Simulated assay, not measured.
Amino acid sequence: MDKNTMKIAVFIFLSLLSWEGCTKNSQKEKFPYMVTMTAPKEYPVEVHIGVLTDDKKKLICGVPKSGVVNTRWVYDGKNGGQGGNTVPSHLNLTYVSYAEKKFWRVDADLPKEKILQLFREGFMIQGNPDDKGEFPWEESTYDELTIGAAPGGVIVVWLSGNHHRREVCRLQAKETFVNKDEFMRRIDPKETQEQFYELSYKILVPDSTKQKIKENGIPFGIWDQYREKYKYRFVLRPYDEQDKIRRIYRINYDGESGFLMDAKAVETYRQDGIPYNVEFSFTKYYTEVFFDDMEMLDIFKKLKTKYPDKPIDIIITPTFMYNEMKLSVQCESEEIPLKKYKVKGVWGG
């Protein structure tokens, strides 16, 4: 084999290696996911039409039209069979907000690089038991992209999967008009647009929400307040000095969720939204607590204003025999008892 032939052969070989490496990397960058739509339980919405596209405006999938959406802000919705494995770059979505009696449209770019980075980072989960009966931690990543719609045209996008959820971005929809005959499956030519809104409001919006709207209006802005981050952690004031928090699973009002997998992670201060629901695993016992959003926002805002840049502790104090849990919030030397939380139960022993 002469020198020129040898050079060509080496070039082809290296090119094949490079192509194989690129192919493998390309395959690794494919993260399959389903798309879901969610909304606050009190403020139902319904998709008119929506699509996700890539950076070349090529269709990836639709936003599921799965009927009325009111699955709560902190939970994912129905996927309706819509999804893809290409990282989306753009969202175009039109939907009706029944409590507001209007249609909204969002037509905006998504932070593709941030989504890709979150997919790459993923999270750790407990896998299947090994030969010793232990559950080893394994790498995993997100498998759902959830779009949330709240009053005021607030749109928040999350990645979620296996009890983990991270915010991707917050977008702003604009009020738009859609003829109800283009939206409804059954067309009633005698029904006006206003009658459509009023009937939908009557049927789909909970009576308790109607009363709140009548008394105080829709709480515009609250979903953005949920997104404010505070530096805090959970601290156990144990009845038994040997007790400690071993693990925490938390869901925050901003829709994010995840595990603090060990005592070291629990002891570390984090920038987080206010807690909605937290499951505490102690040495022998475990409990589940639901927090009141207005109480937590009020206390955290006051402490943040009074003690700028100082971290906050949410303190859990078990009573005798762990029959009950008392909770308080402390910053510096100031401690404020919580009054509106609910303990679902205490188990173990």
Rank of each mutant, 00 (worst) to 15 (best):
K342W: 08
G77Q: 10
V235P: 00
P32F: 03
S281Y: 15
H164I: 08
K202T: 14
L159F: 03
I315M: 03
K212E: 14
V343G: 07
N79R: 06
D130H: 12
I8Q: 07
G221H: 03
Q193D: 07
Y341F: 02
E139F: 14
Q117Y: 00
S281A: 13
F119W: 10
D143N: 11
E182D: 15
D254E: 02
K7S: 01
P275E: 10
L91S: 15
K65R: 15
V45H: 04
S97K: 08
W158S: 02
F103K: 14
D54C: 06
G81R: 01
Y95V: 09
I203L: 15
R250Y: 12
M6Y: 09
G77E: 06
K102C: 01
Q172T: 13
D143C: 07
K344T: 15
Y269F: 15
I316E: 08
F300N: 07
Y307E: 03
D309S: 13
K24C: 08
E228I: 10
L14I: 13
V68I: 12
L59H: 06
L303W: 07
E46L: 12
M34E: 10
I12M: 02
P308E: 13
R247T: 03
L297F: 05
K112R: 09
V266C: 05
K65H: 13
Q172V: 13
K301I: 03
Y98A: 03
T53S: 13
Y286A: 08
F291L: 05
F119H: 05
L118G: 00
L93R: 04
E228T: 15
I218Y: 08
K112C: 01
L59W: 03
K41Y: 11
P189R: 15
D298H: 08
E241N: 06
T209I: 08
W158Q: 01
D207G: 06
E46M: 14
M261W: 06
G84Y: 02
Y230P: 01
V205K: 06
T53V: 03
K264L: 12
R165I: 08
L338K: 02
L171R: 11
S208P: 00
F259K: 06
L297Q: 02
F300T: 10
P111V: 09
I316G: 04
L116Y: 01
E100G: 02
A9I: 09
G80P: 00
P111I: 06
K28P: 02
K231E: 11
H48T: 11
P238S: 11
V10H: 03
L303T: 13
M34W: 09
P318R: 00
F119P: 05
P337N: 11
I218R: 11
T38I: 06
